[in-house]
Design a protein around this nucleic acid. Structure first.
Lengths: 166, 166
DNA sequence: GGCGAAAGTTTGATATACCAAACTTATATT
DNA sequence: AATATAAGTTTGGTATATCAAACTTTCGCC
């Protein structure tokens, strides 16, 4: 499709978020969300507009075109998937998961994201893993040890749980 | 520590690889490895040299300083961990795992990488998961279905395997 | 309606990273 | 040792993304 710079992808993402909450986006809000000055936003908006991704007239509000919205949603989805993995699988703190997701969303391609979605799904729903396996991973992160006896008990519990809820 | 641009981190990474195989790195080889022209390499080398990360004299070969080597090894480790996860856990094709790792290595921080290492380790060694669980995930990716009966069999097999190898 | 503040834009500057092409140095061969 | 060629460097230019500060437009309020 169209290869946008990381920066422009970020602008689209913020514009979508503002559009979702406020109907439209304004330069000042985008600048605050991006942590840049308003002048930088105006430059970016011109570029996005020239690529047909936003509706932009000087001194007016900003909305996404259908094309821009689709792209913004893709970026937002990548962000959400990665944050989910980092926060709910790796059990990173929310702030850290967010910070890493912001960067990784630009570095990962469609094939990898789609597979990651499948992985998270499988991990959550396979009876051999699921939420209690993730909890046991969290515990492992604290203790750094695997104990054969504990594993045996854990495994038995896991099997019993699945058989009874069957 | 010192925040290097993605590009300079890539240069360090390539220089380490060349140093490992050839003792020293040369401009031409770095240019080939990076996919840029030699003139671009010379510019980057000056910057790396000014930051005390490489030993560089015009028209001579290049080696890493201890500081540069440490940084290069960190980048290389991040790369290897991510490639391992993408290739051996998510089961992406080697080329795709490599391409994504090249980009993600610059986007992920130490906390996330360290946790990912723990996760891969736990996934490989926990009796509830391990290589056969990953194989069952790979199979799931093809079929996109979870079957309670299959799960029951899979879980029983998993438990039996662990008990006998105990 | 006019005016002041807030919002938005423009301009000129900086920094990074790259290329193309001219130029310099090193080397390899005879 | 001379010279052609390969390797390395320099120069000038492009593109992106940002800031600071001057400038313009819009909008609310009296």
């Amino acid at each position: 499709m169209m290869q946008l710079s990381e920066s422009l992808q970020d602008y689209l993402e913020k514009i979508l978020a503002l559009e979702s909450s406020n109907k439209v986006a304004r330069v000042k809000e985008i600048a605050e969300a991006m942590g840049v000055l308003q002048g930088s936003v105006t430059s970016a908006l011109k570029t996005l507009s020239s690529k047909g991704l936003i509706n932009y007239e000087p001194y007016s509000f900003i909305t996404l075109t259908p094309k821009g919205k689709k792209l913004a949603q893709e970026v937002t989805r990548r962000h959400a998937v990665i944050k989910d993995f980092l926060g709910n699988v790796l059990q990173l703190e929310a702030e850290n998961a967010e910070a890493n997701a912001c960067r990784i969303e630009h570095a990962i391609d469609r094939i990898a994201i789609d597979r990651l979605v499948q992985f998270i799904d499988y991990l959550n729903n396979c009876p051999r893993t699921g939420p209690d396996w993730i909890a046991s991973f969290t515990n492992y992160c604290k203790t750094e040890a695997m104990d054969a006896q504990k594993c045996k008990t854990c495994l038995k519990q896991c099997k019993d749980d699945f058989q009874t809820t069957d």
